[in-house]
Design a protein around this nucleic acid. Structure first.
Lengths: 158, 158
DNA sequence: CTTGATGCAAAGGATTTGCACAAAT
DNA sequence: ATTTGTGCAAATCCTTTGCATCAAG
């Protein structure tokens, strides 16, 4: 754990930010979870054992995102955050099921490779710099897809 | 214009929705603009000549999006809408400049083709149905990129 | 003792909702 | 008449901000 904080410490230092106990608590929550979390989820999780204000969670994750420590994804007007540094899945896309509303990570090195290629192509042809890529697929997850199949089946049988 | 409303009329009928004068006004605003617009932008645009409430714009675009008439994209907690049916660029991605905050459409048939391939691959390997794809790239647009270059240049010269 | 960080409560902006009324079959 | 849509204002949800206080060099 200590090791992981060194780079973050440096990043914060560079921007005159202090690695306070609250920031450590929030970082811990990010490290412990291996997926995106909303502010409220993070807040509810840490407030049980620690005294941290909601506003601090908002402020901290905003700073973390500016420094590239976390990544922010916005779905239906709500922001979710996940660790970017040290992540086992640094580039991954999200899938939102229209039926059960769950948000699933899709992490596949073949896909990631394709996206990197596309990004390079866009950067060259459009003369822009791309720092980040947010992809959200929307559709039916495998579970709801099965459920729906069964449902359709039974309505035919009626 | 009339022709374009027939399919929409049918879609609305199927869901027991009426194609009211307000819905026509909003549709017109969507057709006239060839890019994404926020609710407020649409509202401000139409309220000059027509009496339409803000809530109606919200309600209408929610229905339109459910029926697949419009597409919703959410950036920084704000929803933007664009016509999906009859669109000249049915599949396109958005780019947000971190410097000037402008949101630019990127429409390129090569890119679109690649995305379709990736979608097919994901559908097969992950056993899901994909209805929609939201892609937002974040970075520096060509203009700000140039501005920054000049700035860096001058700071070197100092 | 100065600078930045925090917690709280209040304010803000985007969106939704309750309700009485209007429109259209 | 019945159903659906509308405008308005109030309510709601997520997020930001002002301010007094706290923590640390």
């Amino acid at each position: 754990m200590k090791d992981e904080f060194i780079l973050i410490q440096k990043l914060l230092d560079k921007h005159n930010c202090k690695l306070t106990s609250q920031k450590k608590i929030i970082l811990k929550a990010l490290i412990e979870s291996n997926t995106h979390q909303s502010i409220i989820e993070i807040y509810d999780r840490i407030k049980i054992y620690n005294k941290v204000g909601l506003a601090t969670v908002y402020r901290t994750l905003k700073i973390f995102t500016q420094l590239g420590i976390t990544k922010e994804i916005s779905i239906n007007g709500v922001s979710y955050y996940e660790l970017k540094i040290y992540s086992k899945k640094p580039l991954h896309i999200h899938f939102k099921c229209i039926h059960c509303n769950s948000i699933i990570d899709i992490d596949d090195s073949n896909i990631n490779l394709e996206f990197i290629k596309i990004n390079n192509y866009i950067e060259k042809t459009k003369n822009i710099d791309i720092n980040d890529m947010n992809i959200i697929l929307v559709g039916l997850c495998s579970k709801c897809r099965e459920d729906k199949k069964c449902q359709d089946q039974s309505s035919i049988e009626e």
